[in-house]
Every structure is written in structure tokens, then in C-alpha cells.
């Protein structure tokens, strides 16, 4: 449900109606950014931001820090698994010795 894709705001096309051009891999589409513009800020300030687009509306900022954190966590999980694997490799040896 709810196909949403990350894209980057490249320009503001119609500030009165909160419309911006968003780029996805070189394809651009006009998108409404009303839901992500904070009160008392200027639409222009959002140029360069990554947003999540659903049916022509930007519905969320993409948080680079959080994304990095998730990737780091994934990395850690992986490394933890490697340690486990290393431990496992030692186990059968020990078993062999005790025989």
C-alpha cells in the first residue's frame, strides 16, 4: 500500500500554492509541499531537502541522521553475526579435542 518514494526538492514552482519541483533520478515532477513546510518558514529554504513523495504530495522529510543511524545499526548487527560465526567455528574444534 501507499507507494512512496524519496526525491529531492530542486526548486519552488508556485510558492502561493506550496508547489515545488522534486527530482527522482533525473525525472522531475511538480509536488505539493504543504505538509512539510513548518509554520513561519519560507518555501525557498527547503530547496535541496529530501522528501518522501506520495501521489504528488511530499509527506515527510527524510532524516539523513536517522538513515545513517539505521545503516550503522544494520552494520553492527552484521558484525555481531560475524563474531558469532567466528565463535561457532571454534566450537567444533574444542569438541574434537575433548574426545
Amino acid at each position: 500500500m501507499c507507494l512512496g518514494i524519496p526525491g529531492q526538492i530542486v526548486s519552488i514552482s508556485d510558492a502561493d500554492n506550496s508547489m515545488a519541483m522534486v527530482d527522482v533520478s533525473g525525472v522531475q515532477r511538480e509536488v505539493n509541499i504543504m505538509c512539510i513546510v513548518e509554520p513561519n518558514t519560507n518555501a525557498q529554504d527547503y530547496i535541496g531537502e529530501w522528501v518522501l513523495v506520495h501521489v504528488g504530495f511530499a509527506m515527510s522529510h527524510l532524516d539523513e541522521e536517522e538513515a545513517q543511524r539505521t545503516l550503522a545499526l544494520l552494520q553492527e548487527l552484521g558484525e555481531f553475526q560475524e563474531e558469532l560465526d567466528a565463535m561457532k567455528e571454534q566450537e567444533p574444534q574444542q569438541a574434537g579435542e575433548s574426545q
Binding site: 527524510l62 538513515a67 544494520l74 548487527l77 552484521g78 553475526q81 560475524e82
Partner: peptide, 23 residues
């Protein structure tokens, strides 16, 4: 950061799958 390809890495996937197996 492109927010897409980073989350499709097969090496990380392999390790996660082992983790899932263990759990």
C-alpha cells in the same frame, strides 16, 4: 545518501538472514 540503494545491499542482507535464523 540516495535513501534507496543503501538499503538494498546483499552482503548486509546475508548477515541479517543469519541473525534471523539464529533468533
Amino acid at each position: 545518501m540516495k535513501y534507496v540503494d543503501e538499503f538494498r545491499d546483499p552482503d548486509t542482507a546475508r548477515k541479517l538472514v543469519q541473525q534471523i535464523q539464529r533468533l
